[in-house]
């Protein structure tokens, strides 16, 4: 077992001829929090979605916990993995979306148990008790039988985090988890994320919350137009940016 959880080498991705990722290198150590920052359209979300194969990267090497994402290397050839193998890979990576994407037809408790029972084959009662534990952890005891539409945005996002955690992921991806929230609800979600970071979860967070990045992240990557402009310790990079682009970006968001 290496200490590297996610390793990207020269990852490229185009949509209809437009190159969104132009050769990205990234390395995330086990147990670390990495923040991806940058202007919208810079490719942060695309990179994140490539890591759990929601998007297929065109070329380059992308490994999670040593395994190639979406491919299998045998001899000198790369074989595309079949759907079942890709599902198994995804089940080990939790993802939290900007717009929560809680299953609208299921209660809070069912949202958290369905992955465990249908994907991992966990027994229903065990799944429920785990779901209750996780709800307590994100501060939402007593909301088990509510439907997502009955919760505030902040509560929904916390349920979404619990839903992802229920799968016992080895890596958590957050795609702008607080961007769709009212300002006064951002704090409660960031609190849960900080708690998760303290517990030693490996996390990659696409965010515009510079304070969160500075406080919690071990490493920050600044993406612009599909390339990584600058990266390093947030206390250095965000305070004393060396590239002009990061300087101008920070002057706009801070």
């Amino acid at each position: 077992m290496s200490d590297i959880m996610v390793q990207a080498r020269d990852v490229r991705k185009s949509y209809a001829g437009v190159e969104v990722l132009k050769g990205v290198d990234l390395s995330v150590a086990r147990g670390e929090v990495t923040c991806l920052i940058g202007p919208s359209g810079s490719g942060k979300s695309t990179l994140l979605r490539c890591i759990n194969h929601l998007e297929k990267h065109d070329s380059g090497e992308l490994r999670v916990d040593g395994d190639l994402v979406g491919y299998e290397a045998r001899g000198h050839k790369l074989y595309e993995r079949n759907d079942k193998q890709i599902c198994a890979q995804r089940a080990q990576i939790g993802m939290v979306f900007q717009r929560f994407n809680l299953f609208q037809n299921l209660t809070v408790l069912e949202n958290i148990t369905i992955g465990q029972t249908k994907v991992k084959g966990v027994d229903v009662e065990a799944a429920k008790s785990k779901a209750r534990e996780l709800l307590a952890r994100v501060g939402l005891e007593g909301k088990e039988s509510n439907y997502p539409s009955q919760l505030s945005g902040g509560q929904q996002q916390r349920v979404a985090i619990a839903r992802a955690l229920a799968m016992d992921p080895k890596l958590m991806l957050f795609d702008e988890p607080t961007s769709a929230l009212d300002p006064e609800l951002v704090g409660e979600v960031l609190e849960v994320m900080k708690d998760l970071a303290r517990s030693g979860m490996t996390m990659i967070v696409v965010t515009h919350e510079m304070n969160f990045a500075r406080e919690v992240a071990n490493t920050v990557y600044f993406l612009d137009s599909g390339v990584i402009e600058e990266s390093g310790d947030p206390r250095l990079v965000l305070v004393n940016p060396s590239s002009a682009r990061l300087q101008s970006f920070l002057s706009k968001v801070l």
Binding site: N52, C87, A88, N101, K118, V119
Partner: peptide, 19 residues
Amino acid sequence: GQSEAATSLGMSRGQSLRY
């Protein structure tokens, strides 16, 4: 986003459709 969330939990296309 609903099917994306289902996919990210590791559900197959069929499971995502059904549940």
